[in-house]
Design a binder for these strands. Structure first.
Lengths: 152, 152
DNA sequence: CTGTGTGCAAACTCTTTGCATAAGT
DNA sequence: ACTTATGCAAAGAGTTTGCACACAG
């Protein structure tokens, strides 16, 4: 992971107000009204580095941060964000859907014991010998999940 | 089914019944009693080539084939088979668990439109540049899922 | 016989949905 | 004002579980 689109700290520091506005602009660009709930979730999701959350995680976090929203809204919002390309879903277990703020090409370690996801930069990994898609189909995405267990 | 009396091992050697006996032996090796239901499912799963099924699929198939068993038993059996190493789970969508009769190293195409899985032989594929597992963890398995969509 | 497996239905988890209310523009 | 989101609670899908009965050894 190099200089991939990360903004220099200077730009962020330039204008204190800009942060909030950024999220609003970003939401608007996705044709989503910047409501309080969506802004709160966007702030939690996109303020720091890349994150992996489940709906429940994020709901709890939002409540803890003082936001007032329902789990249903979190689900709705996560799906809207996903559809808008701000998030991506990661399927690793049958139980929960994980949402990933890193929408670039990359893969995952999955720690089965505690359900934690860890990014593997896509640039590091090369896959060879993959057959091409059956006729009539095209490859939408290639996901690699490296399942980890604690060493005993 | 047929003889209510004792089934001497000699019957296993009988040619005509060899198939069935094979399944019974296989189940027994996994410390699973070869009950009617388990035999019926084993027959459906392992008679032909490799298969991918969901619990509901298999239940419907079994009923269609004249077996009399409940969905709960199918779930129980699939998990027992999985634990015994006869099957393996494939997680590709959050909705259903797919069970794969191919327990060897291989990967999958996943056709998102209709939920169909297609094997990719593991021998064909090579992955390079994968970071090694974080300390304290070890790699249990590497799964590749190639998601396909219909070309428009 | 004795213990294990099965069936049934209820319980459970995660996720989605419908509709009245609230908020955004 | 007019439109779009939200909250709530109920519904929904897939899967699991508890217990009485049935079957395999």
């Amino acid at each position: 992971m190099r200089s991939t689109g990360s903004k220099p700290a200077a730009e962020n520091a330039r204008q204190g107000q800009r942060h909030k506005a950024d999220f609003a602009v970003r939401l608007r660009a996705a044709q989503l009204r910047p409501t309080q709930q969506r802004l709160a979730l966007a702030r939690l999701l996109f303020s720091g580095g890349d994150r992996h959350v489940t709906a429940e995680d994020l709901h709890g976090e939002a409540l803890g941060a003082g936001a007032r929203l329902s789990l249903a809204t979190v689900y709705n919002t996560l799906h809207q964000f996903t559809q808008a390309g701000l998030l991506r879903q990661v399927i690793v277990d049958g139980d929960k859907i994980h949402f990933d703020t890193n929408t670039g090409e990359h893969h995952h370690f999955y720690v089965e014991d505690d359900g934690v996801l860890i990014d593997i930069p896509g640039s590091d990994v090369r896959i060879e010998g993959l057959p091409k898609a059956p006729s009539g189909k095209e490859i939408e995405r290639v996901d690699i999940v490296v399942r980890l267990k604690s060493r005993s």
